[in-house]
């Protein structure tokens, strides 16, 4: 689904990725772990097309519906329409804009893009509530302004809700587990779990091992100094839990 080859990138003159190679196939769940400042968040933001980053070299190929596309040629919202989703570590607040209105606009943009039917306010509300209930989350969030005065946990839940509604193909979940208590973590994790299928790839970016106790992953990568220094199965994550990042790389 995504092929990243020898990716070098910098932000404000500071290099953050120093030759990333990563392949994620449809149906897989990967975890990327690493110490602070390793480049985890940078990687996900670059996938989503954040304009602050400068790609020095390397390529990102994105394959969807059997078509290969050069991701780096695509604009931010174009990537989103093509099924790329990044959950924010710190979701942005927008005063006055209702969550429901925002979700419906995003959903209808996507519908337009795919040539499918747009939903009016009533139909969409029904659709959204069903999705949210299926996630075991609270539909109250819909009525509130986008992320405004949301607790940390609510913001993270809202990211998962957006994911469920926009139904993307490749998801980068950036520190979705940070700052959550155990109940919120379970809710978020089961949201992710229920979201996996053979057409979809999920990449969980995390500092801690914790969330991996609730979500089954196919592969774990360790990122350090802008490079993947080690890859393996979920046992690698357990090792990190025991010994930390020090001995790697």
């Amino acid at each position: 689904m995504i092929y990243i080859e020898d990716l070098h990138a910098e932000i404000e003159g500071k290099s953050v990725l120093n030759g990333i190679n990563l392949v994620v196939k449809a149906g897989e769940v990967h975890a990327i772990m690493g110490p602070n400042g390793a480049g985890k968040s940078s990687l996900s933001r670059i996938i989503a097309g954040h304009p602050a980053y400068n790609i020095r070299s390397g390529s990102i190929e994105y394959e969807i519906n059997l078509k290969k596309k050069n991701l780096l040629d695509m604009g931010v919202h174009e990537r989103a329409l093509n099924g790329i989703f990044m959950s924010f570590q710190y979701p942005v607040e927008v005063n006055g804009l209702s969550n429901m209105e925002f979700l419906r606009s995003a959903f209808n943009e996507l519908s337009k893009f795919h040539g499918s039917e747009e939903l009016d306010a009533l139909d969409f509300a029904e659709f959204a509530e069903k999705k949210i209930k299926a996630l075991g989350m609270n539909t109250d969030l819909l009525e509130r302004e986008l992320n405004v005065a949301f607790s940390g946990g609510e913001k993270k839940q809202n990211e998962i809700i957006q994911m469920a509604i926009l139904s993307p193909r490749l998801c980068f979940l950036d520190e979705t587990d940070s700052g959550l208590d155990i109940d919120a973590l379970r809710t978020v994790a089961s949201g992710i779990e229920s979201f996996t299928n053979k057409h979809r790839a999920i990449v969980i970016i995390t500092h801690y091992h914790r969330i991996l106790e609730y979500v089954n992953v196919d592969k774990v990568h360790i990122l350090k100094d802008g490079r993947i220094v080690s890859s393996g199965d979920s046992s690698l994550a357990k090792e990190i839990e025991k010994h930390g990042y020090k001995n790697l790389g």
Binding site: H77, A80, V94
Partner: peptide
């Protein structure tokens, strides 16, 4: 804010 909304396809 604009980037966030753009990343959701707007």
């Amino acid at each position: 804010q604009l980037l966030y909304l753009e990343m959701r396809g707007l």
